[in-house]
């Protein structure tokens, strides 16, 4: 059984020096490499990715579609389709217990009860033929072996806690009678039923309207601080997580290109990709006019560019970037890390 060791590998890059460092490390992903062996070739979904999450902390994994931002948590939750997916290297530890290659009993005891997950589309995650209350109660009946009556009571209580009005009445309704926001609340209730230590939210607000997005983010952050959970938010939307994230990891083409405290990232992004991404988001105030944009399109994960995967789109690329892939290294005078040869020059 592996324990949390402090090595000098890039896994430590993310061990934050912020105020939450005294808390226990709950989940730790180290040098994780996931490949998809497809007919067209090997897809390098994630390469050498490392992150960890402490009690009471919020980590945001940011990236565009195809960046591999969801892959590492899918590996954690055992949701990778195998085959074609292969965990080609690295480790995933939950409170010191190695999950890669662990027995299915070990995995079952952790997934769902210790680490829970909610998804982008709550409609497809709820079974349309059962009442919502029944589905939440089922988690109690199976996970905690409660009686039917007790489980129903707890389900209604939990629905109230996640802000579903009239929970007694709502518990008797079917998923299609819920609005998108209410469904997401029901999903959150279900994920919280077994009081997990880590909650993973994969694009939790993407399918929702802007006024509802704000409500769901508020709810997630409230529950996180009440339960002192570790919260992992995976999103492409730089705006929705800005106020709640403690730390961020930015993904590009299957690699982490920048990581560090959220405030530093938003105030002064270090990696050229992060800079381009942040400056291409249109704002609700300030000057309008031509938007900054990152030229070109994200690379195919089957044929990654040589050297730094971002170099064909990078406005600052130099010869070295074409041949050599930069490692995630510490940024001077700052707690973050960036995978760019020119980090210091560009800041």
């Amino acid at each position: 059984m592996a324990t949390v060791t402090s090595s000098t590998s890039s896994a430590d890059c993310l061990r934050s020096g912020s105020d939450s460092s005294s808390d226990e490390v709950l989940l730790e992903v180290q040098d994780l490499t996931v490949e998809f062996h497809t007919d067209d070739g090997i897809v390098h979904a994630v390469s050498n990715m490392s992150w960890d999450i402490n009690e009471g902390e919020t980590l945001a994994i940011l990236g565009e579609s195809g960046s591999g931002k969801s892959v590492s948590v899918q590996a954690v939750m055992g949701l990778l389709p195998t085959p074609p997916a292969v965990i080609a290297g690295g480790s995933i530890r939950y409170r010191g217990t190695e999950l890669v290659g662990a027995s299915s009993d070990t995995l079952r005891s952790i997934r769902g009860s210790e680490v829970a997950m909610i998804f982008q589309d709550p409609l497809s995650a709820l079974n349309p033929v059962y009442r919502v209350g029944w589905q939440i109660a089922e988690t109690f009946r199976i996970g905690k072996r409660m009686s039917r009556k007790e489980a129903n009571g707890r389900a209604i209580e939990l629905m109230g806690r996640v802000g579903i009005p009239n929970p007694e009445q709502r518990a008797r309704q079917y998923p299609h009678q819920f609005s998108g926001g209410m469904r997401q609340r029901a999903m959150i209730a279900m994920a919280l039923a077994l009081e997990p230590k880590v909650l993973i939210a994969d694009e939790p607000t993407t399918a929702l309207d802007v006024t509802v997005q704000a409500q769901i983010m508020d709810l997630l952050s409230k529950i996180q601080s009440e339960n002192r959970m570790g919260l992992i938010l995976i999103t492409h939307d730089l705006g929705v997580v800005a106020s709640v994230a403690d730390r961020v990891v930015v993904m590009y083409a299957g690699r982490a290109v920048e990581s560090g405290p959220a405030d530093d990232f938003y105030a002064k992004p270090a990696h050229p990709y992060s800079q381009g991404l942040l400056s291409s988001v249109p704002k609700i105030s300030g000057p309008t006019g031509k938007l900054n944009s990152i030229e070109g399109t994200p690379p195919s994960v089957i044929e990654l560019p040589s050297g730094c995967a971002f170099h064909p789109r990078c406005p600052h690329s130099v010869d070295r970037c074409h041949s050599q892939a930069p490692e995630l290294t510490a940024i001077t005078d700052r707690t973050g890390h960036s995978a760019c040869f020119l980090t210091e020059e560009l800041l």
Partner: peptide
């Protein structure tokens, strides 16, 4: 309400 809900990529 709509305007106040729009998230901005700026934690401050």
């Amino acid at each position: 309400a709509l305007l106040s809900a729009v998230p901005e990529p700026d934690p401050v």
